[in-house]
């Protein structure tokens, strides 16, 4: 458990976090491996875990009938996957698939939500770390929507 705690706290998402919070988080955490092509989760499924990638790459995919799926983002080491575990009804809004051998921490969502509810300082700390990631991704999605590369000349 000590090793898991040390590794977990070394993840960039948790850089500098109070060790007391780390001890709370490690109780919700397990080590995971995903093979290339293996899904971490599928759209509509229960968002009962969220993931901190240690190594490898995870593609976030959207799909529509009669079309190949579209990768909207690819995440790598040091990044987190998923925020739906925070938002009722706790269902994933896209597919997440490992595209290489991937190692990640899985944090149990129910366990984490309960601990955040019980300790609002922990809850605030998690929000303070999650919100910038979500804002950066929202801004990136806006830039991708602009389709800026379509019609330039040089």
């Amino acid at each position: 458990m000590e090793t898991l705690e040390r590794l977990l706290l070394a993840h960039p998402f948790l850089a500098g976090i109070d060790p007391a919070f780390g001890r709370l988080l490690v109780g919700c955490t397990r080590n995971l491996r995903f093979a290339p092509g293996q899904y971490l989760f599928r759209e509509g499924g229960p968002a009962d875990e969220f993931y901190l990638i240690r190594e490898g790459r995870v593609a976030l995919e959207l799909h529509a009938p009669a079309r190949p799926p579209i990768i909207i983002a690819a995440l790598g080491a040091g990044e987190l996957v998923g925020a739906s575990w925070l938002v009722p009804p706790y269902r994933w809004g896209f597919d997440a698939k490992a595209t290489t051998n991937t190692r990640a921490f899985g944090l149990d969502a129910t366990c984490l939500r309960e601990k955040c509810d019980a300790d609002h300082h922990l809850g605030y700390e998690m929000m303070r770390r999650l919100l910038p990631v979500m804002v950066r991704r929202m801004q990136a999605a806006r830039q991708q929507m602009l389709d800026v590369y379509g019609h330039t000349s040089a």
Binding site: I70, A73, A74, Q143
Partner: peptide
């Protein structure tokens, strides 16, 4: 990196500033 892709692409997907 590319803005979006089909699953045949195994590189970065996202915007350049990222």
């Amino acid at each position: 990196t590319v803005d979006h892709s089909d699953p045949s692409w195994h590189g970065h997907v996202g915007v350049v500033p990222a």
